[in-house]
Each structure stands twice: as structure tokens, then as C-alpha cells.
Amino acid sequence: MGFWFSESHTDNVKLNILVDEQLYSRQSNYQKIDIFQSREFGRVLTLDDVIVLTEKDEFIYHEMLIHPAMAVHPAIRRVLVVGAGDGAALRELCRYPDIEAIDVVEIDGTLVEACQEYLPSCAVGYSDPRVTVHIQDGLKFIRRLSDVYDLIIVDSTDPFGPGEVLFTKEFYGNCYKALREDGIMINQHESPFYSYEADAMKRAHRRIKESFPIHSVYQAHIPSYPSGHWLFGFASITFDPLKDLDAERWNALNIPTRYYNTDLHRGAFYLPNYVKDMLGEGR
């Protein structure tokens, strides 16, 4: 039989996924967490009824979140991941032997526990000894730090729930301060397609621009997200995402990926005209 999980993408558009079983449901101190078993997408994690990941397409999101920065900056040793309760961003980071330490700041400990139990293919990242988990507010964790990290990954939910602080200027400014002098910040940058996400996307870009000298946006196709067209932000102090791409070095690492490669890296930074217009960048 099964039943349909529905997510409203706008007031007039819905995505429906046929679900066989609800594996987990709990209201944490911050959000409602549900995990479903679906036929098409495997397990599906939702927060406040919005899909955060599915087993079928999370590799796209997480590879694109991690590998572009790793292929640009040649010496990433210390990494901070903000958000990422599911652990899949850690899984990708842990493929790099040169990374020495990964701090994870996730506000919702219940989410981490749920993913460890029901999404082992993502949460595998937590078992690496280089990973230290801090259950704390991301902004609070970062505001005291300066000159610590080579890479900060902002793996946030939408800016309409607990993830809101991770889209603010004070947060980006504090990230800038917490980075070393050639550091990079990558963030989940919402979508340009529907106005709800697009407004958040434009605001985030404006705030990042005010804090970082180099600020680019790149894209990927993530079928389970509204419109499927999703963006990431590449903000950096010295490295340029295209000029400083070292394809040879990255390919020599032999990192197994299903979506990312260094040709796609170049292409991902070439944006459609309507997106360029939204970002206020010249065509």
C-alpha cells in the first residue's frame, strides 16, 4: 500500500513521494524530525516537513558541498562544519588523508542520534577519529574563534527555522574571522527558481559579499529539492575557484565520486543569465 509524503514547494506546487513506512518521528527542541522509507528515493530525512536529504540523491549535494573547495585549496588541514547533522559532509571530508581535524557544530543532538540510527550511509562520517562533535549554536561556537580553520562548510537547512542564524551577516563575518588568511567558506546557498528560496539566496549572497573579497556561486542538480536547481556559495579570502583549481593534484588523489569531477567543477561556476541578474553580477 504505502502513503504519500507531500512537500509544498510553493503554495501551488507539491512534490509527492510514495512512502512504505515511517521509520522515525520526533519533535526535538528545535524542529520536527522524520525519516521515511520510500520506494524511489530510499530513506528520506525531513525537518519540519521539508526534505533535507534522500539516500538516492544526497551524494550530489554532499560531493558538491565538499570537493570544489578541496580541489582549489592545496593545504586544507583544519575544517569546521556547521550544521550537517546527518554526517554525510563528514563522510566526504574524511576521504582526504591530509585533513587533520574536523569540528562539527550541530545545534540539534537529537538529529545526530536519529541519523546515526537510521541513515548509517551518511552518519558513517561521525566514526572518523579526526571528527569532534559540538552540540551547540553555530554562531555561538564560532564567534570567539579567530584564525583557526582552512575551510568552513555551512551545511544549513533553509533560513526559515533553526538554520536562520546561518544566513546572517554576523555569522558570515564571524566565519571570516575564524578562517586563516587563505581560508574558504562554502555554504548551502538555496535555489534561484522559486521566489521563496530565491529571496533567501539573494540576501545570503549580498551578506557574503559584504564579508568576503572573493564570492562566487556554483550550481548542481538535486532532484528532491524544490525545482531541482540548487546553488552553493564559494566565499574566500585569496583563492579563486576557477583560476586556482588544481585538477591534476585533485585527480591524483583518486577520490571516488559519482557526481563531481574537475571538468564539472569548471562548468558549475558558469551560471544562467537569470541567476547572474539575481546576484547582481555582470553577464
Binding site: D137, L139, R144, P162, K169, E170, F171, G173, K177
Partner: peptide, 18 residues
């Protein structure tokens, strides 16, 4: 809400830095 208080504190750090 706690998160708004965190935002205020975070912004005050930034204002001092900048």
C-alpha cells in the same frame, strides 16, 4: 528566542572587529 540573542551577541563581536 535564544537564537536571536545569539545573533545580537554575534553582531556585537563583528561591530567591534570592524
Amino acid at each position: 528566542k535564544t537564537k536571536n540573542i545569539e545573533r545580537l551577541i554575534g553582531a556585537l563581536y563583528e561591530i567591534r572587529r570592524r
